[in-house]
Structures are given as structure tokens and as C-alpha cells.
Simulated assay, not measured.
Amino acid sequence: MTRVSGVSRVSGRPTAAAHGIDAVVRRLRAIAAALPPADGVAVFNRMYLTVTETVRARLGAFEDPAAMAVLDTVFAGRYLLAVDAVAARRRPPACWRPLFELRAHPDVHPVQFALAGMGAHIQHDLPLAVVDTCRRLGREPEQLAGDYHRINDLLAAVEAAVREQLMPGPDVLERFEPLTHRLGSWSVDTARDAAWASVRVLWELRGRPSAAAAYGTALDGAVGVLGRALLLPLGLGPAAAAARGEDQAQLECSGLPSA
């Protein structure tokens, strides 16, 4: 397994840390190649690969590109640890379980998978990654705040593109209003604002390990509940079920665990 979370030194330039992003991109591409395209994890993974490649291409636009390269690498490491846990038939964190457990469900639409993965990664993994990055670099969260919020526009653009690409046609939307309602209840801006609030709480608790651990556990569970709500099956009918059944068969033939 490529180690992506062991960056401990950073200069004023992003070059060294950017190699960590290169490793993340290679790993995300390998995951994409190993999964059937309609697998729920594959749907999220493709979107996350796009985000990571975009961040890598735009590192120079940040105030502190080296720190952002480290953050991006540490952040990705948490998703990759969840992937590795499932591959080893261990349980991933609670926030990731809905996506991995429902990844081949015939009545969950691909856009649900994309947003559930974003929710788990942003609302749980991101605050932990920011705190870890601050500790590694000897920074305060406020020193990263400008770049943290600057990336919102990038993520919002990717999310909008994904929604447009994956959104079902009007015939499905007319029949399944709950999908429209569910997707409208989640936004990347709100998720990142909530994540930043969690950063501030975790940073204040850094000298109290037991309290920080309790908060982290509660956050993990709460985000998992949200993910399960986003992934509630919609009952899209026999055609969708047949198509998703083919994807499940491909998944089983690949030798990768489905939950």
C-alpha cells in the first residue's frame, strides 16, 4: 500500500508535499480501475480523483501551497484507510459504513453515492485532517483558514458538475420527489462550515485526549447517520434493479468485498 499520510516536513515550496498528492492520485486511479463503474464506492472515488487532480493543478493559487499539499495528502489518507479496512474485511469508521454497505444496492442512485461519500469525507475526515496537519506543521488552524475557505469554490464547482452529470432525467425526478428533496438538503458549503466548527472544537480539546476522543466518536456516528439518510433506497423499479444486479455480479467477480 502506498503510504500517503507520513509527510512530516514542509518547506516554503509545495514540491516535496506535492509528491504525496501524486501518490494519492495513483492510488485513486488504481481503485477506479479495480471497481465496476456503477459501484457506489467507484462513483465517489471518481469524483474524489477529480477534486484531488484539480487541487494538485492549482496549488500555486493558495497562500500556503506547501501546507495545502500536506493537508490534501493527510485528508486523502483517511479515505484510503477506510478502503483498506474494507479490503481486509475489517469495519471502516462509522461515517463510511453506509457507502460501503450499500455500494451495490439496486435502488440507490449514483448521485446519492457521490454526496454520501462527500459527506463522510468532509464532515468527519476533514476536521481530523486539519488538526493533524496543524500539529505536524506547528500551525494554528487560523493560519490555514484562508486557504481552507478558498477551496470551497473549487469543491462547489466539482459538486455542481457531478450533480449535473449524474442527476436522473425529469421522468425519474417526477416519480421520485424524495430524491430531489434529499439532494437539496445537503451542500458542500454547509458541510465545510460544519467541518471547520469541528476543527475549532477538536483544537480546543487537543490537551484533553479523552474528551477529544469522545467528540470524535460522536462525530463519526452522527455523520454515519447522515450518510445512511442520503443513501435511503428510492425504489427505482425493475430496470434499475436489473442494471444494478449486473454491477453486483461484476463486483463479486472482481474479488473485492462489497461491504
Rank of each mutant, 00 (worst) to 15 (best):
W196K: 01
P168R: 06
A161L: 09
L202T: 01
G221N: 12
V158R: 10
V223M: 10
V199Y: 01
H181F: 07
G207Y: 03
R150G: 12
G184S: 00
L179Q: 01
V162M: 13
H149L: 14
L234S: 06
Y215P: 00
P209W: 02
G207S: 10
E204N: 14
G184D: 06
A160Y: 12
E177Q: 05
A211R: 14
P168T: 07
P209H: 02
L219I: 04
V225E: 14
W186R: 13
A218Y: 07
G221V: 11
A194V: 06
R200T: 04
R206Y: 10
E204Y: 06
V188W: 03
G169I: 09
R163P: 10
E174T: 11
H149I: 10
S187C: 03
Q165N: 07
A156W: 04
L166D: 05
R208V: 12
A195P: 05
I151P: 01
V225W: 13
M167N: 11
L219F: 05
S198I: 04
H181C: 12
L154E: 03
V158C: 14
P168G: 06
L183G: 02
W196M: 05
L202Y: 03
D153M: 08
R150E: 11
L179C: 03
I151Y: 02
L231Q: 02
G216W: 01
E174S: 14
Y148L: 03
G227T: 00
Y215N: 06
P209F: 01
D147W: 00
R208C: 04
A214N: 02
A191F: 04
L154Q: 03
L226V: 12
W186M: 10
A195D: 00
L202V: 01
T180V: 07
V162H: 02
T217N: 14
D220S: 10
P233G: 04
E164G: 11
L179K: 02
G227K: 00
N152R: 08
A213N: 06
R175L: 14
L219T: 11
A160V: 05
D189V: 15
T180L: 04
G224P: 00
